[in-house]
Nucleic acid binder design. Structure first.
Ligand code: FES
Ligand code: FES
Lengths: 166, 166
DNA sequence: TAATACTCTACTAATATTGTCAAGTATTTT
DNA sequence: AAAATACTTGACAATATTAGTAGAGTATTA
């Protein structure tokens, strides 16, 4: 239960790729797809949504790709997920689009509200920068095993796997 | 996104009804259905699952119904939801049944793990007793509007609405 | 023995998710 | 100018999950 959509998951991973990419250089969709094992067609859909939400910008033509629209510390995981999957609404009653007439007399109403706020607080406090450095206090005590490797160089990795040409 | 199933929602509400029912007397499924606006047939499915999980017991025959298997403070919301919807698994990779080979090299792995634990911690700390009294610290500052009314008497309410006979 | 109430399995309709496909448009390099 | 690269868009199909219904059966008590 409480499953996160693949769209949201891939979206966060794609944003991470863009964030960790070559400083100032656009990251090609093909490269993101290869590094994160997601189809180019599906990613196009996802990145298009993210671009419309103003989280990334795109550069066309050869050598083109995607760039963050803001600094990594200014982009939260919550924003990414909301952009792709809509607002968090644990129950139909909590959904601003639907609402509930019984809410005032409903015992569980505040329960779901409190949980929703807790989740949203977590996701809004977590930024791409935190993913890059693994230093958010929420994640302290946990370890990002291969973050150092990830940061050393994209092309070295990709050439090794043979997923893209050198 | 992150939607809770109606099964889980109805399950919690049904458990609340059983918990707040007549001391020691079984609560009939028909009464729960009427008070929570859920079909009897659907509730049967839900209560059956909860019974198999050992959260409630049933009494057959006229005057029969359902009882909590334990004290309200010993039954957490987390248990109820897990019983009905399975374990919380935000992503397929976090699901113990599926797992992920990439997990070690995946940046988001720890992110979802941390969030999942936060949610689970919240739900396991919240008990039926907290719903009955509205006094859990997680809910402090929030108010259960009509809890007093809820606690005054079931039959008075039901007779008024005409949903069950007197 | 009739009435009440729980038990169980199967099934279906609706909805949401997860992606694919194809045909574009824009930009830059050669 | 032409070709290659890369983003853009909308439609669509396959799959999975959810939500809920139906119906026949079993147990218990007044
Ligand atoms: S039924 Fe809508 S808030 Fe509980
Ligand atoms: S891809 Fe499985 S943990 Fe990230």
């Amino acid at each position: 239960m409480l499953k996160l959509s693949t769209k949201g998951q891939y979206g966060v991973r794609a944003m991470f790729e863009i964030a960790s990419g070559h400083a100032g250089e656009p990251v090609a969709i093909k490269e993101i797809a290869a590094r994160q094992d997601v189809s180019v067609a599906y990613l196009e859909q996802i990145l298009n949504t993210l671009r419309k939400s103003g989280l990334i910008t795109s550069v066309r033509g050869p050598g083109g790709g995607y760039l963050l629209a803001r600094q990594p510390e200014k982009i939260s995981i919550g924003e990414i997920l909301r952009s792709l999957d809509g607002p968090i609404a644990l129950t139909a009653c909590q959904d601003p689009m639907e609402g509930c007439v019984r809410a005032d007399g409903c015992v569980t109403s505040l329960l779901w509200k409190a949980l929703g706020e807790k989740i949203e607080g977590f996701l809004d406090a977590m930024t791409l920068r935190d993913l890059l450095t693994g230093k958010n206090k929420q994640l302290s005590g946990q370890k990002y095993p291969s973050l150092e490797i990830e940061k050393t160089g994209h092309h070295a990795f990709l050439e090794k796997t043979g997923k893209i040409g050198a």
